[in-house]
Design a protein around this nucleic acid. Structure first.
Lengths: 214, 214
DNA sequence: ACTAAAGTGTTACTTGCGGTAACTGGAGTC
DNA sequence: GACTCCAGTTACCGCAAGTAACACTTTAGT
């Protein structure tokens, strides 16, 4: 039971785990989030109980799977957020990064955000609710930190930054979700429109003829 | 098979349907969205097949249930949106209406938005993904209409309004969800913070010491 | 009044999935 | 060679969605 042996075992277990995750990834991306544990096990060339030994339950498998993609996305966003540029440019870069990601891998996106699609009716495979929140929440918190860190908001700045962090992330998310479904305009246009919204164009715009506007 | 008989039957069927929906409502609000069809049927004092005769499948039941609450919420929002007041005031009133609604009936809210909570691990009862989108989408579209109708946005206004509609709804939703979970501040503060965000305070704020800000 | 139809309800079943218990076979260790 | 681990298997349990087939009650038609 010395260290090297233990490390060897752990290493092999980790490798197996990665293989299983990759198999799960393939299945989920092919069959949608309703993929059954049996199907995933089959894709990995093994049977169910092994999956359970590695991940505990379906939620565990999902969580591991989600963590990979979530971390990747958050990394990309952080890079855009930390780039040396003006604020507006960064905001646009961040929005664009997010939208490019969901555009490039809509399957992954739908898996992370809308787990139930692909399940026939009831019975969705993975429970997203418990884990999709984390993605949004983590994005919101990270953005809040960046805002708090870089923008001078006066008194109550911490709370304000958190509200804005979650709010902006939600805006990005909802707009992206809608855009992905309908493709009503180019990505660049969407980015500009959202940035304009954040830049107060709503407040600056005039009323339409016929009374006080929204 | 003349008209009066048919009407009578239909009326009775409609009444029954309402009763069943109310029972389902009670169960869902008590047991969370993981409530089983058996449980709902028991609450209504009948058995499963009747539910299936009325609603087709679990998704149908959910859709009917969601429609009620969705319509109610949309009605309230429309009222706030159409009130005779200045734009900022309306925005705040609408935000406050939404937040007050989710604060007053968090169970309903969670059912509409996070169906999977309450299910043990996998196996959530209702499939929200397919139906929660509708709520957000409807809110987004309605808001887009109001914006397009009342705010003068120059060329490309229709598309811009839709982007903003969905974006603002998403902002409200995400911020509300986070706020409901952590209660980090009063509702009024949250409303103010979000309205400030929409009013361009992010663009107007100065950089913090130490370089260009977000 | 007798029958037929149609709606309301039931019990009992199938299917399919998540999850688990208990067994099997092979690699390394003393 | 006996012992222990560990990957892997088969075979099962429980539970919930959904369905088929049967029973009761009302209403309409002749």
């Amino acid at each position: 039971m010395d260290t090297t042996q233990r490390t060897d075992q752990q290493r092999s277990a980790d490798r197996r785990r990665r293989e299983l995750l990759e198999a799960a990834d393939r299945v989920v991306l092919r069959d949608g989030p309703g993929a059954s544990m049996n199907a995933i096990a089959a894709e990995a060339g093994i049977t169910k109980p092994i999956l359970y030994r590695h991940f505990g339950d379906k939620g565990g498998l999902y969580a591991a799977l989600a963590k990979r993609h979530t971390d990747a996305l958050l990394g990309a966003l952080r890079a855009a957020l930390d780039a040396p540029a003006e604020r507006r440019e960064r905001v646009e870069a961040t929005l664009d990064t997010y939208l490019a990601a969901i555009e490039a891998h809509p399957q992954v996106y739908r898996f992370l955000m809308h787990p139930t699609e692909g399940a026939s009716s009831a019975d969705q495979g993975f429970d997203l609710g418990k884990h999709s929140a984390p993605l949004l929440r983590r994005m919101g918190e990270e953005l809040a930190e960046v805002i708090e860190e870089r923008v001078d908001l006066g008194p109550g700045s911490q709370q304000l930054a958190r509200v804005w962090g979650h709010g902006i992330v939600g805006m990005m998310h909802a707009a992206g979700d809608w855009w992905l479904g309908e493709q009503p305009c180019s990505r660049a246009e969407l980015v500009r429109s959202l940035a304009d919204l954040l830049w107060g164009r709503l407040a600056a715009a005039g009323d339409r003829v016929g009374g006080p506007g929204f």
